[in-house]
Simulated scan of single mutants.
Amino acid sequence: MYFVYILYCPETGLSYVGHTSHLILRYYEHRDGMSRWTRRMRSPFLVYWEHFESRSEAMRREKYFKHGCGFRVRGEIIQRFTVEWM
């Protein structure tokens, strides 16, 4: 099983989209600064995730969130998170 996830850091306003087969482990790697792409995020929140049966499906969904209208959808997800939780 593979996951697509969105991280968001309210302190910096940065967000990140990725995919993994071990969601919790990958979250801790991001949180502990072990990923160079999210090192600037001081304390990221896991705001969204989806699961998929294959890696190719997860990669396709990750690409969707990074481009075009999926980028807007990602912004809406983050906005919903900040309204409900912040």
Rank of each mutant, 00 (worst) to 15 (best):
S54Y: 10
Y27R: 01
R72D: 13
S35C: 06
G13R: 02
T38Y: 04
M34C: 03
H51Y: 14
G70I: 11
S43L: 04
M59Q: 15
K66F: 07
R31W: 03
H51M: 12
C69W: 11
T20R: 08
L14I: 02
I77V: 13
V4A: 08
Y5D: 10
L7H: 05
L23P: 05
E57C: 00
F52E: 12
K63N: 14
V4H: 03
Y16S: 07
S56F: 11
F45G: 00
I78M: 07
C69V: 14
R80F: 06
M59V: 10
V83E: 15
P10V: 07
L7V: 06
E11M: 03
G18E: 07
W49N: 12
R60S: 12
H19Q: 14
G18L: 05
G70P: 10
E11D: 10
F81A: 02
H51G: 00
S56E: 15
F71L: 13
E57V: 00
I77N: 03
R61L: 13
S43K: 11
D32K: 09
T38I: 08
K66D: 06
V4K: 02
E29V: 00
R80V: 06
H30S: 00
L7C: 01
Q79D: 15
L25N: 12
R60F: 09
R80G: 12
L25D: 13
E76F: 01
G70L: 07
E57P: 00
L23I: 13
D32I: 01
F65V: 04
W37V: 04
L23Q: 09
R74E: 14
R80P: 02
M34W: 12
M59Y: 09
S54I: 01
T20F: 11
Y48A: 03
C69E: 15
G75T: 04
L46W: 02
R55F: 05
I78Q: 04
P10M: 06
H67C: 03
G75V: 00
Y8V: 08
Y16N: 04
E50M: 09
T38E: 04
V17W: 06
R40V: 07
V73G: 00
F45K: 12
K63I: 01
L25I: 10
T20V: 06
A58I: 07
R72N: 08
F81V: 10
E57R: 11
L14T: 01
C9L: 04
T20I: 06
P44R: 01
M34V: 01
Q79G: 00
E50C: 03
R80D: 15
L7W: 06
F52T: 09
G13P: 07
E62H: 06
M86G: 11
E29W: 08
S56T: 10
V17P: 01
E84D: 13
H51K: 14
Y16L: 07
S54P: 02
Y28K: 10
V73T: 13
S43P: 00
R42Y: 06
C69F: 09
G75S: 14
C69H: 13
W85H: 15
Y48Q: 04
S54M: 09
E11P: 00
E53P: 01
R26T: 03
S21W: 04
V17Q: 07
M34K: 15
L7F: 08
G68N: 11
Y8N: 02
R36Q: 11
Y28M: 14
S35F: 09
V4M: 05
E29T: 02
Y2F: 15
I6G: 02
E53V: 04
C9H: 01
F52D: 13
